Simulated scan of single mutants.
Amino acid sequence: MLNLNVKNESSRLRAVVLGTAISNGQMPSVDEAYDPKSLEHILAGTYPVEKDMVAEMEAFNKVLHKYDVTIYRPELIADYNQIFTRDIGFVIDGVFIKSNILPERERELDAIQYVIDQMDPKKVVRPPEEVHIEGGDVMLWDDHIFIGTYKGSDYKDYITARTNKEGVQFIKDLFPNKIVKEFDLVKSKIEARDNALHLDCCFQPVGPNKGIIYKSGFREEADYMYLVNLFGKENLFHITRDEMYTMNSNVFSIDSNVVVSEKNFTRLNNWLRSEGFTVEEVPYAEISKQEGLLRCSTLPLIRD
């Protein structure tokens, strides 16, 4: 039996589901692109190839092994993108919540059913159909649950809007003792530099009291100020529009002082080191072309 436990983003990681890039399938057509960044690379002829993405994920896998993390991988589905396990489910405290994802991605959940089968069935929850929520929008910080959403009246027109107000309410009802705070995110179907696909595209805590943030990812300045007031401005690393685009806020913590980051994030990695973090650098630039990075390709199950 898996004793699920995740209360924040940075406690010592013990067990995780890491996605896979093997048998990733053909390059999507323009009509099949889920996000503007993938679309940009499809049109430019620079969409990532499988062997490069497999190598990048293997580098990440090696770092997790180095820290004695138990690693689960999805069962392989031929010609199917299974990199971004963060989207398909998430753990809060001891509860596993299945995401109501885009219908064409439902098979990704089936591929980790063997992991779900090791959980207490009473601790596995599937929200009702009207609830949209994905793991990239859910961020834990001990007593707090931060949730990215989109409150525009045109929500249904945005394939990039992944978590709705019903999703926020569902988490509030499920965890009445937590401080649940939603953040209204900037969305774009056509410009990746102005699209915060998930909350982890514009914010992520690292360590016990630090964070990475992109101010313009929030539709309301009050939402940005909420985090500034909570963390303290001096504890937040502010990234630029281009750094948001290359996904600097989508790193992944193995421990309160160990962060896995993309090797090209020079400014961020220098800051992390100056703040006392061990930075494990891996190549992940090809995977990032699909508007996802290190946090997106993990589904933590157990942290100390």
Rank of each mutant, 00 (worst) to 15 (best):
M247V: 01
G292Q: 11
Y245G: 00
N270R: 13
V260L: 12
N248K: 04
H238P: 09
T266C: 01
V251G: 01
A285H: 11
R267K: 12
M244N: 15
P300D: 13
T240L: 03
D242Q: 13
L293Y: 07
P283T: 04
R241H: 10
V259M: 08
D255M: 09
S249Q: 03
V251H: 09
S274P: 00
R267Q: 00
V259S: 11
L272G: 08
N270A: 13
D242L: 13
H238M: 02
D255H: 13
S249N: 06
V279T: 05
S288K: 02
P283E: 13
L272S: 01
R241F: 08
C296G: 12
R295H: 15
N257C: 10
T246N: 08
D255Y: 11
C296L: 11
E262L: 05
N248W: 08
F277I: 01
N270L: 01
V258T: 11
T246F: 06
V279Q: 09
L293T: 10
E275V: 05
L272T: 04
R241A: 06
V279A: 06
K263T: 02
E281I: 03
M244D: 00
V258K: 12
N270H: 15
L294I: 14
L301V: 07
L293R: 09
I287V: 15
N250L: 08
S297A: 13
E286F: 06
G292V: 00
N257R: 13
L299G: 07
R267F: 00
L293H: 06
T298F: 09
L268W: 09
F237G: 03
Y284V: 14
K289Y: 10
M247R: 05
D255F: 10
Y284P: 00
K289G: 07
E280W: 03
P300W: 08
V282H: 07
Y284Q: 12
S274E: 12
S297D: 05
K263V: 12
W271H: 05
H238Y: 07
L299H: 02
S253I: 06
N269M: 02
V258C: 12
F265C: 00
P283A: 07
I239R: 05
P283W: 02
E243Q: 15
E275A: 11
F237K: 09
V251K: 07
Y245P: 00
M244L: 09
V279L: 07
N248Y: 15
N270K: 15
R273K: 15
D255E: 11
N257T: 08
C296P: 03
T246A: 05
F277R: 07
T240F: 05
K263Q: 09
T240R: 04
L301W: 12
F252Q: 02
M244K: 15
F277K: 04
F277G: 04
K263I: 08
F237V: 07
T266R: 02
E286I: 01
R267V: 05
L293N: 13
R273G: 01
S256Y: 14
S249Y: 02
I254C: 11
R267N: 04
E286P: 04
M247C: 10
S253K: 13
Y245V: 06
E291Y: 14
P300H: 10
V258F: 09
